[in-house]
Design a protein around this nucleic acid. Structure first.
Lengths: 251, 251
DNA sequence: TTCTTTGCTGTACACCGTATATTATACACC
DNA sequence: GGTGTATAATATACGGTGTACAGCAAAGAA
């Protein structure tokens, strides 16, 4: 990567400190317009449809002119990501149990991924230091107010929660897209290939997989149920965080 | 997607039932050679370097001839993924605590992602029904033998564990690649942009982010420590699964 | 030997991100 | 107000991608 990370940060924060005396041709658009158009395109057509050409066309501009707003496509995607974080709702936490507050955060993040599937493909747990992510971080940290956990443990616990939510939501988004592409429900799919799988899938070599896979599939009505996996996992995540309080000094 | 999912399954299981009477020109390679070459290329040059052209060149063949082995690139990647699962070590579980067995599984999966970073980008939690994934599933289910959990809960717990490991490992891989690309350590990076961030990052608007972010960064020596995040999260995952036993009927 | 089936090859299409050179525009200064 | 200069927008082009398609090469069947 030979791009300048400092430039990306300036763009993220919409920093215009350099360039006091403006001269030369005016820009037809502005950065936020480009970013918003990229998000709208990703929302409606999928992240794969976001190319510099298609985005430029949508903006009534030639592809290369986008490079006066953004150093390259990678940076544009990072800007889109931070804008998505920025736009997340951050309602005040009612005075409630920490468990409810963390659950709110989890579903809040999940909603983001489901509303903007492309975010699940781009996002990383690693902090990017943009204003959106920072505001999000601040808000989510506030859910731990009054828990008595020390600062470092709070950061660990939040990272843990977000790692799970991100992973589970990614799986949900992928499953949904696969279902759309295949245009077949799980049952149809299973029926159609049952004979092939019966020939090749041996209950003797995979006894547990056969038994448990069938049991789980029947219980959920599908081979993989992202909603249930999320709900189940989230409660385990909260149980795991709850165990932290038992090992607190002075608890 | 207009490709035939049944064909992919036949390829995954190396099914050659159709085509008893073979006629026509012999193939220069075979499917496993193509898959192995793809894996080797992804390992050494990164998944982005795996193109049908580069792979064909490496195999001494024209690009289009690969399409006699595989319907398309997507299917090739799925075959590579299942082969990676197939090749994972599956040592017998010593008679041990369930907690140790699940920890083994977690580190086993993490090792896969670190050894083959491209797997972290391709893998999904959703079952793909290939032989490698099936063998992996069977093995990992056996870690729950004797726990007394019911079948459906075992499947849920395993999915939960793998979701976390996948998410955390993905983050680790991404962080490692970012570090390589940037070719800067975190401290260098922070120093270089400290002035810009100081101007733009307001401790008053982000009090918790400033305090806790600094505390965590100082404790770990970096802005994001994937190894620590994994170790911390894994213990919380195990704590969360442990809580399942308290709610077991007859416990 | 001829037919038929299959694998391999060469070419081509539509796309991608973006480097480069050129033209159009807006302000600063004389 | 004209002119120089800085910036934005454009047109073109390069090297890459996955893969459709047409033709040629080889191997077993008749």
């Amino acid at each position: 990567m030979d791009s300048d990370p400092a430039l990306l940060i300036r763009l993220l924060w919409r920093d215009q400190s350099t360039g006091a005396a403006r001269q030369g041709r005016k820009q037809k658009l502005d950065l936020d317009t480009v970013i918003s158009a990229g998000m709208a395109l990703a929302d409606s057509e999928g992240i794969a449809a976001v190319s510099m050409r298609s985005l430029a066309t949508r903006l009534g501009v030639t592809p290369m002119s986008l490079y006066t707003y953004v150093p390259g496509k990678d940076e544009l995607l990072e800007l889109m990501l931070d804008a998505a974080y920025r736009d997340m709702p951050r309602p005040d936490f009612q005075p409630s149990e920490w468990r409810d507050r963390l659950r709110t955060i989890a579903y809040n993040n999940r909603a983001l991924f489901l509303a903007h599937p492309w975010v699940a493909h781009i996002a990383t747990v690693r902090p990017s230091l943009g204003p959106g992510q920072t505001a999000k971080y601040e808000y989510e940290l506030s859910a731990f107010d009054g828990t008595g956990l020390d600062d470092v443990t709070i950061d660990d616990a939040l990272t843990y929660l977000l790692t799970f939510v991100h992973g589970a939501s990614r799986a949900a988004v992928t499953a949904r897209q696969t279902a759309l592409e295949t245009a077949l429900t799980d049952e149809q799919w299973g029926e159609r290939h049952a004979s092939l799988l019966a020939r090749v899938f041996d209950d003797q070599t995979y006894p547990r997989a056969a038994r448990i896979g069938a049991a789980a599939g029947q219980a959920r009505g599908t081979a993989y149920d992202p909603d249930h996996a999320f709900a189940f996992g989230l409660e385990r995540v909260l149980d795991g965080i709850a165990a932290l309080f038992n090992s607190m000094p002075g608890a």
